[in-house]
């Protein structure tokens, strides 16, 4: 008898938890192209930061460093250009992104 009682309690607990009414729904919107570009920009900045650190640590000769840095800066500039174009098209989304980043 006690075994069946424990089983019943477990059943009620599990189903009550599963179907208990939810309050606010977590509706996730799709990531915008602007957010995606910001993510890419952050990665390129991280790469630049690592490159600078390794250069200061004496790992790369100056010529290699300058070449690598120029490539990464070009990549970052291209991303910033695309970000500016998209932000100009949708200033509200850009502002919202800035707020969430803060």
């Amino acid at each position: 008898m006690s075994a069946f009682l424990v089983c019943a309690i477990l059943l009620i607990l599990c189903f009550a938890y599963t179907f208990w009414p939810t309050g606010q729904l977590l509706v996730q919107r799709n990531k915008s192209q602007l957010e995606f570009l910001h993510e890419r920009k952050d990665v390129v900045y991280d790469n630049l930061r690592d490159l600078n650190f390794e250069f200061r640590a004496g790992k790369y000769p100056e010529a290699d460093y300058n070449a690598q840095r120029a490539t990464l800066e070009d990549e970052a500039a291209e991303l910033l250009r695309k970000i500016d174009i998209l932000a100009a098209k949708d200033p509200a989304a850009a502002a919202a992104l800035k707020t969430s980043a803060r």
Partner: peptide, 9 residues
């Protein structure tokens, strides 16, 4: 290094 390596490096 990432991308490519010179002989000096």
């Amino acid at each position: 290094p990432w991308r490519s390596t010179s002989l000096q490096s």
